[in-house]
Nucleic acid binder design. Structure first.
Lengths: 250, 250
DNA sequence: TCCAAAATCAATCATAATCATTCATAAGCA
DNA sequence: TGCTTATGAATGATTATGATTGATTTTGGA
């Protein structure tokens, strides 16, 4: 394996998993531990990653994402599980809208080889989708620095050029009475528009979002198929009322 | 196998696999190691690929990352000089269009504290502009993987929402007769539209672009103020005909 | 809290792979 | 034929690699 290939490989793995262990890289590349260490030093010096004891993590960009703290890899695993399940609803040749967000981001590795056209309003998603060789359109518009999401009138206008087979939205809360909610009204407007242009809409959420209410309403529960990963008592209460909810089996 | 055939073969293999090893090429072409090496040197000098230890990779990928390879630091210095000079034409409070490209990218550090609104079609530029705290709109559209530039009808349409005080375009060639040119017609169309929406247009080029002609014409020389960094004999010939050309003093 | 075991680290060295260069030969062309 | 260009082999120099060493950090239990 070529030196540059390894560097690329390491960065791609990082994009997917946020963190990698050295041992992991040794096994998957076939190179020696020394070589991997040198690679990591090189990549760190060029600012592409940050070394930590036992491996490496992504720099800066991660600060954009709602900081996955060191010990909460459990939440990441959860997101990946949800993402994988969600991706299974994507058919060959579909046109897909991927909302900006960490959970939708995790869907990307599961989407390649499906011959898709993907539209997104997430800056981080564009790069990752391109790395997977997926044809990608970005809505454009005004960028929100924290999340890398594009919002505003131009975003809405750009969306209206398209129609989608499926549409995946990240949400910050769902509640039987108040529906799906998210903190930013601008983002809510984008999600609404995307959903109205799609034949089918999926809302992705981990268990922490159950019965939470955020500031801006996106839509009623019935308008989308909810994908969560865990059935707590509360979630069951929701499920009783709304049979449209899908749940990932652990 | 003919020399040209080999060159084509190498490039095709690269398009597929992103990287190739020399040993691999020796086996698949039947040529000797020396010959393959010479081919790679040739192709590198004509900018079609980048050699790395043990083989070669596509250049485009590296353009995405603003990490200009070590050997071209001279060209980088040149770009920075041009970029700094170009940035001096930006007034406080201007609305600015920044074309996707490495030279325009270098302008960004010189633009902060000017209270600007910036629109760009370059993926890499958005992030850098945001890091400088500059309000930034991205056109969106279809992304070209190599350069991170957005092109196509959606890009054109998005541009028409704006008007610019100044507009900075990277170009690949300029010639008294054929005007400003660039390899990709799609990009040329975007540049044209941006310029037509601006009160003033600047074209940025290093000295290697003098009297070069690329595939797609952007506009005539008179339509923009050219900023180059060096006066060769050839450039002087251009200057005599077109007095609008600005030149960076070394 | 402290200590010992395990894991990870930086540094070094010998080896293997790759590099640029040279030179002699082969192939193309007028 | 005589000239130019492309090729392949050989050379010493340079670079990447993997194994080893002892130092440092983390981990887990008393």
């Amino acid at each position: 394996m070529l030196t540059n290939e390894r560097h690329l490989f390491i960065m791609q793995l990082l994009e997917e998993k946020q963190t990698v262990k050295i041992q992991e890289l040794v096994e998957s590349t076939g190179a020696s531990e020394s070589t991997i260490r040198r690679d990591l030093v090189d990549l760190e010096q060029s600012g592409k990653l940050e070394r930590v004891f036992g491996g490496a993590t992504l720099t800066g960009k991660n600060l954009l994402e709602p900081s996955i703290s060191d010990k909460s890899t459990q939440l990441l695993d959860e997101k990946i599980k949800i993402a994988k399940f969600a991706a299974s609803f994507v058919q060959q040749g579909d046109s897909v809208y991927l909302d900006a967000g960490t959970t939708t981001f995790q869907m990307i590795p599961f989407l390649k080889d499906k011959d898709l056209v993907v539209v997104t309003n997430g800056l981080t998603l564009v790069e990752a989708l391109n790395n997977q060789g997926i044809t990608t359109y970005l809505t454009g518009g005004l960028m929100k620095p924290r999340t890398g999401a594009f919002v505003g009138s131009q975003t809405i206008q750009a969306l209206q050029n398209y129609r989608f087979d499926v549409c995946f939205l990240g949400i910050n809360g769902f509640h039987p009475k108040y529906g799906y909610t998210t903190p930013d009204p601008e983002e809510a407007a984008v999600k609404q528009m995307a959903s109205s242009l799609s034949r089918k809409t999926f809302a992705l959420a981990d268990h922490s979002k159950i019965n939470k209410i955020s500031f801006a309403k996106i839509m009623d529960l019935e308008r989308a198929t909810l994908i969560v990963d865990e059935i707590s008592k509360d979630a069951n209460a929701v499920l009783e009322k709304k049979t449209i909810v899908k749940v990932v089996k652990p």
